[in-house]
Simulated assay, not measured.
Amino acid sequence: MPAGLGAYRVVLADPAARAFSLAALVARLPISMTGIGIVLLVSLESGSFGRAGLVTGAGTMTAAVSAPLWGRAVDRLGQASVLVTASLVWTVAQGLLVTGVLLGWPFGAVVAAAVGVGLGFSSAGSAVRARWNHRLQGSPLLDTAFAFEAVLDEVVFIVGPVLVTFLATRIHPAVALGVSAALGLVGALALAAQRGTEPPRQPRRTADTVRARIDPGALAPVVVASVALGAIFGGMEVVIVAFATESGVLPWAGAILMAWAVGSLLAGVVAGTLTWRRSPAARFRIGAACLALSLLPLPWLHAPLLLAAVLVVGGMAIAPTMIASVSVTQAAVPHSRLTEALAWSSTGLAGGLAVGAAAMGLLIDRGGSQLGFAGVVGAGVLLTVAALGVRARPVAAP
């Protein structure tokens, strides 16, 4: 296996892989834009972070429930038809959400629109990793490919929050969410159009599919830990907006969130160049503990620049933890069920995002951003405890 950055050069020498990875990058941009965009739209229109958190939570909770169903549909029907269907649902529902907020629809109608947004939420992250797994199955370069996608995830979380905050504060939050919807639709259609790199479909009634079972004992701890991880991410989005509002630097809320992603990106690049001696499960537990420790100072920080600096350092634990999570899942489930298994991890993450956004929004309404940061610290403690249950359990050969 090539050493250092040479592994990235080998992986990216494949033009078809570059094409599907780029399309998935565009399709994933709304993941980092939609949550903060909804928080900005609802909080600025209603003046309540609690309502903003509840609307965001409704969408992400729906995404949590629907992700495994989309994942199973992808494995059985192929990626193209599912990606197109989900992206159309996403686009229409986001238009209804913006319209409802601006026209003052009843709160229940706005929440219903958010449910539609969650129903069509992007599964491009699971889809692109399944393509890499199909293309590099059995190759030591697969970990490098997963690391590369983790780096692109951080690019998403660097570009997305800055872009959506700029559009929301300089033009209007509705414009920001409109751009998010357009990017998600274009990226999903571009990925769906690349039929030649799709993993093969797994029809419902073949003998191989009957034998290919997912071991709940191997996957459940990863999902539970993903819930806690999602609570940190979802809560942080809302708390950063509240902190920036209190500090008089709201246009810079996206840049503060970007600092977190910058640290993660740097660590992700390095992680892809290393040959690991510890198991993915051990790396996940170590990364989760480091991330939780980095959150402890947040309730006592009041200077935006100092907060951004602490987030850069703490962000360095994110990408290695996420890479390890994918590797644990990939090693523990049958190849024919990988997209579904990754979707279950996404379900945990999305469920945590929903709970984190809603809970931190309510805490902020009661005690400001300081209390919100305390809630994020609590989610970090839960992550550390949950990560202890993640163990290496290789899938049994047929």
Rank of each mutant, 00 (worst) to 15 (best):
E198Q: 15
T62R: 07
S180W: 08
V82I: 00
G356C: 07
E154R: 15
F373V: 14
V381W: 04
G248M: 08
L185V: 13
V55E: 07
T329R: 01
A181Y: 11
A253V: 04
L291V: 04
H335A: 15
S48M: 04
G104E: 04
A387H: 08
A289L: 15
V39D: 09
L266I: 15
A145C: 00
T60V: 06
W276F: 12
A207D: 06
T347W: 12
G118P: 09
R391S: 09
G378H: 09
G248R: 12
V162Y: 01
L29C: 08
A341G: 10
V223M: 05
L167W: 10
G380I: 01
A112R: 13
L301Q: 02
V227W: 02
A127C: 13
G108Y: 03
L183M: 13
L342I: 05
D75M: 09
R213I: 07
E237Y: 08
D14A: 03
V313I: 11
A114W: 03
A17G: 07
A332H: 02
V65I: 01
V313K: 08
A124L: 01
L353I: 15
A354Q: 07
L136G: 13
A113Q: 01
L371R: 13
T339A: 15
I31L: 11
G37L: 11
S122Q: 12
I36N: 02
A182D: 14
A397G: 07
A350P: 05
S345D: 02
I318W: 14
A168K: 10
W90Q: 15
Q330Y: 09
I171V: 14
L152A: 09
A188L: 04
V82A: 00
A303V: 13
L296Q: 02
F233T: 14
A17R: 15
P320Y: 05
G217S: 14
V262L: 15
T60R: 10
W276R: 15
G104Y: 09
G108D: 01
G125V: 13
I171L: 08
A225R: 04
R213N: 00
V26Y: 04
W344L: 11
V269K: 06
A242L: 06
F284N: 11
A145Q: 06
A292R: 07
A181N: 12
L44P: 06
V11C: 08
A181P: 12
G348L: 13
P200C: 15
L388I: 14
L298I: 08
F284H: 14
Q94K: 03
P2F: 09
I232W: 01
L382Q: 03
G6W: 05
G287V: 10
A354N: 02
A354K: 13
G315C: 04
L167K: 06
A73Y: 12
A64F: 05
V312D: 05
G389N: 07
G380D: 01
G138H: 13
L40H: 06
